[in-house]
């Protein structure tokens, strides 16, 4: 049985991973500050919206919709008209602060059932650890199991500290792990993307250079090596 895939929306990445994300599946895009995680997520949702696929963006940071629109407006590849319809924006930050993890999971489940998205983003997932420290692992296990049962591709973004390669508590449960790195070389900071794992896929290994532009978002460049 051939695995069905949907485009990642990131230029140059589909060619590295056999055509796109397995459908359905759960992916983690992890990296430090400024490496392009949210831009990657927006490319993923925009690609879907252009193909008639419903997107659902959960923010754990309680950032208002206007903030997201302002952020999106700097990128030419994002059609702002998609927001509110083809891409729904849901704030779960308040619920995260006030309720237990079971309520949060139920809320996410209900929103998915209501909106029926083919593409889901939770940005960032790692902030949940600050609120559910003791139950974080259980929360992740239950959330990822739930997401795998919906017919969708879910992209979780994960913030990592400079000395941390990736958020290991998330990586064990997801199907795909993509790392975004910023490395100091010859006096400047260069950005790289690495596919660490993608289940059922012969993917390119090693760090690939990327650029982030306002016209195209994250773009995987041809390797210099």
């Amino acid at each position: 049985m051939k695995i069905k895939r949907i485009s990642t929306g990131v230029k140059g990445l589909d060619e590295m991973v056999g055509g796109g994300f397995p459908y359905p599946s759960v992916a983690l895009v992890a990296g430090g500050a400024g490496t392009g995680k949210t831009t990657f997520a927006m490319s993923f949702l925009t690609e879907g919206a252009e193909n008639g696929e419903q997107g659902l963006f959960f923010t754990t940071l309680s950032e208002p919709t206007q903030w997201m629109l302002r952020y999106a407006s700097q990128f030419d590849f994002i059609n702002k008209d998609f927001f509110g319809d083809e891409i729904r924006y849901e704030d779960i930050g308040l619920l995260l602060q006030q309720e237990g993890y079971e309520e949060l999971i139920n809320h996410i489940d209900d929103k998915i059932a209501e909106i029926m998205p083919q593409r889901i983003v939770i940005d960032p997932i790692t902030v949940v650890k600050d609120f559910y420290s003791e139950e974080y692992r259980t929360f992740l296990f239950e959330l990822i199991n739930l997401l795998k049962n919906w017919k969708a591709v879910t992209l979780l973004t994960g913030e990592v500290a400079p000395d941390e390669p990736y958020p290991s508590q998330v990586t064990y449960a997801v199907d795909t792990v993509i790392l975004l790195n910023m490395i100091e070389e010859e006096g400047s900071r260069r950005k790289y993307l690495e596919v660490l794992k993608m289940r059922g896929t012969d993917h390119t290994t090693g760090k690939q250079p990327v650029s982030i532009t306002t016209s195209d978002g994250v773009v995987v460049l041809k390797s210099r090596f």
Partner: peptide, 11 residues
């Protein structure tokens, strides 16, 4: 329909 829209189509 597309494979991404099966569940929604049934609904």
């Amino acid at each position: 329909t597309s494979f991404t829209q099966i569940a929604k189509t049934n609904l």
